[in-house]
Measured scan of single mutants.
Amino acid sequence: NQASVVANQLIPINTALTLVMMRAEVVTPMGIPAVDIPRLVSMQVNRAVPLGTTLMPDMVKGYA
């Protein structure tokens, strides 16, 4: 099973992602693959992402 990107903290809307905000976890359903974490750094979320939420492609501006 491939790990997905999960929020390590509450990420407010329009926040630029940093490594500290994300962790890799095997979850269902799968979200953004953990291998993409370096690519996500400095991209912004388009909604508030609660702690423990799996990041989906439509939550990150410019990802999809």
Rank of each mutant, 00 (worst) to 15 (best):
A34M: 04
G31N: 00
L19M: 11
M56E: 10
D58Q: 10
T53Q: 14
T54K: 04
V20S: 12
P38V: 09
S4F: 03
Q2Y: 14
V35T: 15
I13E: 15
V26L: 07
T18P: 00
M21Q: 07
T28N: 08
P33I: 09
T15F: 05
P50E: 14
G52T: 03
L10M: 09
N1F: 15
T15K: 04
M56Y: 12
V60C: 03
K61C: 08
I37G: 04
T54V: 10
T28V: 10
R47I: 10
L10C: 15
T15S: 06
I11D: 00
P12I: 05
M59S: 07
L19V: 14
R47M: 13
T28G: 05
G52F: 06
T15N: 11
R23L: 11
L55R: 00
A16N: 06
D58I: 05
S42K: 07
V6P: 00
A64W: 03
P29V: 13
A64S: 15
A34D: 15
V35F: 11
V60H: 01
M56S: 13
M56C: 14
T18H: 13
P29T: 13
G52H: 12
Y63K: 06
D36W: 04
A48M: 08
Y63P: 04
R23N: 10
V41M: 07
L51D: 11
T53S: 08
A64M: 14
L17P: 02
M43F: 09
T18Q: 09
M21D: 08
I11K: 00
I32C: 04
R39S: 10
A3K: 04
A34F: 10
Y63G: 07
M56L: 07
T18C: 05
V35D: 11
R47P: 02
R23E: 06
G62Y: 09
V35M: 11
L19H: 11
N8A: 15
L19I: 09
A64E: 11
K61Q: 13
M30D: 15
D58F: 06
A64R: 09
M30H: 11
V45A: 08
A34G: 12
P29S: 08
G62D: 13
P57S: 13
V60F: 04
V60D: 02
Q2N: 09
T15C: 05
M43Q: 05
M30Y: 12
R47L: 12
A24W: 06
Q44N: 07
A24M: 05
M30S: 13
